[in-house]
Design a protein around this nucleic acid. Sequence first.
RNA 1: AGGACCAUAGCUCAGUUGGUUAGAGCGCCACGUUGACAUCGUGGAGGUCGGCGGUUCAAAUCCGCCUGGUCCUACCA
Length: 959
Amino acid sequence: MSSGRRQQEHSMEKTYQPESIETRWYQRWEEDGRFTPSGEGDPFAIMIPPPNVTGSLHMGHAFQDTIMDTLIRWRRMQGRNTLWQVGTDHAGIATQMLVERKIAAEEGKTRHDLGRDAFIDKVWEWKHESGGHITRQLRRMGASLDWSRERFTMDDGFYKAVQEVFVRLYEEDLVYRGKRLVNWDPTLNTAISDLEVENRDQQGQFWHFRYPLADGVTTDAGLDHLVVATTRPETLLGDSAVAVNPKDERYASLVGKFVELPLVGRRIPIVADEHADMDKGSGCVKITPAHDFNDYEVGKRAGLPLINVFSKTAHILESAEAFDIQGRPLGDIDTALPAAYAGLDRFAARKAVVADMDAQGLLEKTETVNNTLPYGDRSGDVIEPLLTDQWFVAVETLAKPAIEAVENGDIQFVPKNYENMYFSWMRDLQDWCISRQLWWGHRIPAWYDDEGNVYVARTEAEARDKHGIASDVALTQDEDVLDTWFSSGLWTFGTLGWPEQTDELKTFHPSSVLVTGFDIIFFWVARMIMLTLKFTDEVPFKTVYVHGLVRDGQGQKMSKSKGNVLDPIDLIDGIDLEALVEKRTGNMMQPQKAKAIAKATRSEFPDGIEAHGTDALRYTFLSQATTGRDIKFDMGRLDGYRNFCNKLWNASRYVLMNTEGEDCGRHGEDVELSLADRWIEARLTQTITQVTRAMEEFRFDHASQALYDFVWNEYCDWYVELSKPVLWDESASEAAKRGTRRTLVRVLESILRLAHPMMPYISEEIWQRVAPLAGTLEGDNDSLMAKAWPLADDALIDQDAIRDIEWLKGVIVAVRNIRAEMNIAPGKPLDAVLTKGSEADRTRLSDNRLFLSKLAKLASIEWLEDASQAPLSATQLVGEMEVLVPMADLIDKDAELARLGKEIDKQDKLIMGVEKKLANEGFVAKAPAAVIDKERGKLEEYQAARRVLVEQREKIAAL
RNA sequence: AGGACCAUAGCUCAGUUGGUUAGAGCGCCACGUUGACAUCGUGGAGGUCGGCGGUUCAAAUCCGCCUGGUCCUACCA
C-alpha cells in the first residue's frame, strides 16, 4: 500500500501552514492527470484568455483565473467532461518592444542592426527562456488547466489556422488591401487600431489663420481672406480645400472660388460641406484629407485630392504625395513644399509654420483651449492619421450574425448590461485594419511580383500554383504581420485543432463560458464572435462572464508608475518590507517618484506582507466578485479569509482528535442522532442548495459567504460545541456518540466538497485525513477533485430540529447576555430558571438539560410553574418564555432601573410604529393578509416583552 | 455632447419579485487564555441607506431631477 505519497503526518499543525501543502498537492494532481477531460458526461469547456507569453501574473489574471478554476472544479465535481484550455499569446507589439529594449540594453543594438530573421530568433529565444514564468504562476494559483493541451498563438497549428482564415476571407472579398488613412504610431512605425489609441485631455493652442482669397475675390463683408482655425498648423501644408457649410449665407457666393494656400502657394477650392459648423469660429474649416479622419470623409464627398506631407516618422517630406480617394497617385497636382520645412519633425514644423504665418501677417489670433489628443497605448507617442497601404477586414457582413447571436440569446453576457455596450459598438463598426508593420507575428500570406501584383495563398508554392507563376518569376512576401487579435480571434476553435474536424472540436466547441474583463470586449470578444461564427457556424461560447478591474484598496488602478502594484504571489507567500519596496521602486520609468512610493509602501505595510496562502487569496477574490464592477482589493478581507482557513483547519483538528481510532459508524452500525446532529444535517442541506444556486448564477460572493457562515457560525460556533457534551459525557450512549462522530465527520466531509472549487488546497489536505473516517476514500491515489459535488436532499431538512436548536441557542444567548449585563465572569456557574413557557418549552428543557448547562455554564436549570414565585432575577425573553438568573444581592438597583427604562422605551417605539401601521386604513384595506398578520404578531411580541420589562422594573423599584 | 455603472456602519461590501428591529467581514470598546483555534471566544457601540421630489397602504429597493465618483463612446476643424 502506502507509497510514500500516501503517508501523512497524523497530527495536524496547530495553525494552518499553506506553504507546506500547496505545491505538493498541485504536483500530485498534475502527475495524476486530474486536469485532463474525463471523457464522460456533458462537456464543459473554458478557454483561458491567453496571457502574454512573456508576461507575468498580475492581480487581474489571478482574479480571473480564480473564477475560471472555481467554475471548472465545480463542474468537474458535478461529473461534467471538463476542459480548461490553456495557452499563451504571442502579443505582437508588447513582446517585440520588450525584446527590442532587452537587446538595446544588453547589446546596444536595434532590431534593424540584427535584421529580421536574427531578431525573430531572439524573440523565440526569449519566449523559450521566459515563457514558463506565467505558466508556473498559474500553477501556484491552483489553476486546474489541462497542460497536456497547451497552445501558443504562433505554434504550427495556429499558423495553419491563421493562413486558412486569411486566405478564405480574401477569397470572399472580406479581406482587402488599400491605401487608407489609419492611426499611425510614428515611434513604433506601425499602424495601430482605433482600440489601441488612448485619448488624453490636455491644453493646447488654437491658431486662427488667414487664407487669402484668390483671383481678387472678396467676402460679403468685404474681406480679402477667410479665417480658419487649427490645432495642428503643420497640416496646412497638406490642405486641399477650405469648407463652408452649404447653408451658410455668409460664404454662399464663395463656394467654387479658390483660396491661395499660404506658405505653399497652391490654389485650393472652397467647397460646401456639412462638416463645416457655422457656429464655430468663422464657420470656415481647412480640409486636409490625408491627415485628418473627418477631412478624409469630406475629401471623399467632395472629390478632393489626398495630399500627404509626412514621412512614416512624421517628418515633413521634401515634396508632398498626392493621391485620389482610391489611393492612386495623382500626377497633375502641384506637390512642391517649401524647402525650409523639409525634414522637420511635426512639432518643429508646427512652430515654423506658425512663425512664418505670423511674419506674413496671416496669424489672426492664438487661443488656449482644452482638447484631447490621441496617444498610442504602447509607445505613448502622439498618433498621426497617415495614409498608408494596409490590409483590412470588411466587417459589415461579419458583424450582422455576430449581433444576432447576442440578440437571440445564443450568447449571453453576465451581467446583461454589457450587451448594450457590445451592440452599440457593433452597430457602428469600422473596417478592421489588420496589418502591422512589425516583425513579430503572423506574416501576411500575400506575395508580390515585380509589377506589384498581389497573390494571396496559404504558401508561396500555392500562390505560384494557383496563378500559374513560373518558378523564375521572383515573388516577395508581404513584409507586414497580422494584428495579434486576428490570431487570438480564432482562439476557441484554433486551440481545438481547426481547420481539422477533430474530436475535441466536436466535443468542446462551442465552449461554455468566457471569463474576461470588460476592457477587452471590443478587442477580443467581438472579433472572436465574428470570426468564429464565420468559420465554424457556431458561437465561440455560450456565456460571457464579464468582470471588473482589480484596483488597490483606495480604488486606484494598480500601476508600476503609481507604485501601488500588488503581486498575487507575494500575497500568497508573503514578502518582507525591503523586498517589497525594492520591487516597487526598482527599474522605474520615472525614478523621481521612487522616494514617495517607498514612503507610502513603508507606511501601508510596515511589516511587509504576511503569507496568506493561495486559498485565502482565492476566497478573497471570490467574496469580492460582484458581477461587472471593479473591485477594490481589501487586505483586511485577505486576512479574514486566511483566518477562515485556519478556522476550518482547527475545526478539522477537533474532529480528527475526537474521531480517529473511534467508531464513526461508517459501516452502517446503529446510531442515535441527537437534536444537534439532525439540525446540522438540515442546515448543511440548506447550505448546499445556497452554494449551488450561487454558483449557477455566477454569484461567487454569495457562494463564498454562504459557506463561510455555515462553517464558522453554525458548524464551529454551535455544532462543535454541542458535540462536546455528547462525546465527553459518560452518560451518553455509545450509539449517541457514534451518531455524533458520524455526523461530525460526514458534515465536515461535505463542507470540504463545497469548499473545494473555491479553496482547492486546504480542502484536499484535510479531506485526505477525513475521508477514511467518512468512508469516502477509494484507493491510494484518490482525490477530492474526483469526488461528486454534494446534492441537497430536502428530506434531511428537519424543521423541528431547526426550531428546537433556535430555542436552545436563544436560552444560551439569554444567559450570556445576563452575564454580560450583570458583569458576571464567563466561567462562574449560575443557577437559571425558566418560566412562563409553553409545554413545548418544558419538554425542550428536559430534553436539552445537558446542552444548556454545558454551553451556558449553569450549575442548575429548573422549570418554574408559577411565575409569581420567581425570586428577584436578571431576566431575558425567549419568545414568550422568560429566562431568569436569580441574583438579588448582585443587582445595582439604579443602573438596572436605568437599563430597564431604556429597554422599555425601545419597545414603546416599536409598538408605536406597528400600532400606527395597523391604524392606517389604507394599510388594513390594501396590504396582503399575511403582511397584516405579521404586523399583528409583532405587536403582541413587543407588548409581551414590554410587560416583562415593566414587571421587572416594579420588582426592582420595590427593593 | 451621448451612454453605462456606482453612492448602504470608520473601511471593503451584501441586501433576489417593494413589507427585515437594514446585514457580513475588518476595524473599534469591554470582558475572557474552559481540553480545535488568541489567525480565538463572549457581549457591545456604530447607519435619518448621497440630496430633493414623486408613485404606493408601504420605498435602501420603483420613477424623475440634482450632487458626487468611476468608466466607455463621440467631438474638439
